[in-house]
């Protein structure tokens, strides 16, 4: 494990003293990602848990340059930063190299920031865009987003006499991003740190936009215990709910194939947001969810075609 020790030897670019909840997956993703950067970093973040907890005046957890503007505009804000860099570099006003990183949650990516993301991808800015996908609007108190999975109990898709949680499946953000023909797209989990940091390095070296979607546990919103946040990610990967893959210049590669594909219920059982799905009357939802995971897994296997 030489690699990990080297990373730990560098000064962390994201300090303690931030106010994200105990057991939150976001800072784990951020720390792993920043650990493999080689140049000065400028981060843009959308309004959300990470931003409100990492920069509360006069405290900032960032040792990088950091800008937060609003909720919908993470991608357009970082586009401006990167454009400024290109202009000032050309004019000889800066000679440094930089990494430009945008970080937003699923609300800021799948929903309110989708247009800005699309614009950034189409314009081809050299930006790594990381989506911390915790499958809902957690900062405002666990409302459903278009990343919330079928059946999940949230404060806007509550389980009730006539409701069994969210009625629709989550949006295929990877498919949407890939439709922009960007050079590098990957799906990661912070529990698989070696995979995440390898992909981070590739993304940081990509000439043009790259997109990383990370499963990012939220103990508060998922109603899971804080100490199992990484274990949850492993279960998500081992059940093939959250496959680890990358798409380089349109070529799909599966980065991890579980030896035994575990039943989805093993993952769902760890989170009280899915508790109602284990009632006998909701058996069909559970089966639908399993079928949907199976279908997507088969699709990915086909797309990766032995890669």
């Amino acid at each position: 494990m030489g690699h990990i020790k080297e990373l730990a030897g560098k000064e962390g670019l994201f300090t303690g003293g931030h106010r994200l909840c105990a057991g939150c997956g976001i800072p784990v993703v951020v720390r792993q990602f920043l650990a493999v950067t080689e140049h000065p970093v400028i981060v843009a973040a959308g309004t959300g848990c990470l931003q409100v907890a990492s920069a509360i005046y006069p405290y900032t957890a960032w040792r990088t340059g950091f800008i937060h503007s609003a909720f919908a505009n993470t991608a357009s804000t970082i586009s401006g930063v990167e454009a400024a860099y290109k202009a000032l570099k050309r004019k000889g006003l800066t000679d440094k190299e930089f990494h430009f990183i945008a970080i937003a949650g699923d609300g800021g990516t799948y929903d309110i920031g989708l247009q800005a993301l699309s614009g950034m991808l189409e314009r081809g800015h050299r930006v790594v865009y990381i989506c911390n996908d915790n499958e809902g609007y957690m900062n405002t108190g666990v409302q459903a987003s278009s990343a919330t999975p079928l059946g999940a109990d949230t404060t806007t898709t509550p389980v009730g006499a006539r409701s069994k949680g969210k009625e629709r499946e989550r949006k295929d953000i990877i498919g949407i991003v890939l439709a922009h023909n960007v050079p590098y797209v990957a799906q990661v989990s912070p529990a698989h740190w070696h995979d995440l940091t390898s992909k981070a390095k590739k993304a940081l070296k990509t000439e043009g936009p790259s997109f990383i979607n990370s499963l990012t546990p939220c103990p508060r919103g998922w109603r899971s215990e804080t100490h199992i946040s990484m274990e949850l990610c492993r279960l998500a990967v081992d059940t093939c709910y959250w496959p680890l893959f990358e798409v380089e210049e349109g070529v799909w590669r599966l980065n991890y194939r579980p030896r035994i594909k575990r039943p989805l219920a093993d993952y769902l059982r760890t989170q009280a947001r899915f508790k109602h799905l284990f009632l006998p009357e909701n058996k069909d939802i559970l089966e639908n969810l399993q079928a949907s995971v199976d279908r997507q897994w088969e699709q990915i296997l086909k797309l990766c075609d032995g890669n």
Partner: peptide
């Protein structure tokens, strides 16, 4: 160190030496 959300694992001279209780929130990861 790699999984701590709070940058609260103290490392010195290439070795883990303990927990930074000023920042550790006790998540148990």
């Amino acid at each position: 160190w790699v999984y701590c959300p709070d940058s609260a694992i103290d490392v010195r001279d290439g070795k883990v030496i303990g927990v930074d209780y000023y920042h550790c929130k006790g998540c148990g990861i």
